[in-house]
Design a protein around this nucleic acid. Structure first.
Length: 211
DNA sequence: TATTGGATCGCC
DNA sequence: GCGATCCAATAG
């Protein structure tokens, strides 16, 4: 713990530790599960937006037919082949961005999609970014989350060591985790690679598909 | 160069 | 349940 010369405790020393790139250099299913409950922080200038991750999905290897990395490396997916602990962001359906974190060792293409988080700080600003007032409808879906946090292609490839986007450990008690097939995929429906915090109201809305 | 379909969302 | 909207990948 550091004390400044005015006797104040530095707030940085009180903050929970950051999650390092090593956390992501592990099997993707484990990373996807263990990301639940951690805190995602987005800093825009001096503003801090943060929330607790409550829903993720894993995309693993060139044999996963639902993954962008299915088959081979392309211009879009090449970050998935890169080093772990970086953001992979893509644009989809002509309207939305999706945020992923690259996992596993360099050369093996895998990532975890962040589908939803529970807003903690900067909620008013997230609401403004979304043009939406209902707190439960700000970040309960991958496209909504990116809109609320102003995440777009400019952050593609950002390291989680950066100050714009990073993760910190949470001190919350244990959570109950559920899993299911991934949402919105046309192939790879048999793999139950979606993970979510049970009974958390900020998990994405059910859409006929799975839960 | 043209075509096709998508890790979504909001509204009908 | 459906259309918006545009980019990336693939086929030609």
């Amino acid at each position: 713990m550091q004390i400044t010369n005015t006797g104040k405790i530095r707030s940085a020393t009180l903050a929970n530790p950051r999650i390092s790139a090593e956390f992501f250099n592990r099997p993707t299913l484990r990373v996807a599960r263990e990301l639940l409950g951690t805190i995602l922080v987005r800093r825009i200038n001096r503003y801090k937006l943060s929330g607790r991750i409550v829903e993720t999905e894993a995309y693993i290897g060139v044999d996963d037919p639902a993954s962008h990395a299915f088959g081979k490396m392309t211009r879009r997916n090449k970050l998935m082949f890169g080093p772990p602990g970086h953001a992979y962001i893509y644009f989809i359906y002509g309207n939305h961005y999706c945020l992923n974190f690259v996992t596993e060792s360099e050369g093996y293409p895998a990532a975890v999609l962040i589908r939803a988080f529970e807003p903690l700080t900067g909620i008013k600003r997230m609401a403004k970014n979304r043009g939406e007032s209902l707190p439960g409808n700000l970040t309960n879906g991958p496209g909504k989350l990116c809109q609320a946090l102003r995440i777009d292609k400019k952050l593609n490839g950002t390291s989680l060591d950066s100050d714009q986007l990073y993760l910190v450990e949470s001190d919350q008690e244990k959570i109950e985790v559920g899993n299911s097939p991934r949402i919105g995929v046309s192939r790879g429906k048999n793999s139950k690679w979606r993970f979510f915090v049970k009974n958390n109201p900020y998990v994405s809305a059910f859409r006929g598909a799975s839960r």
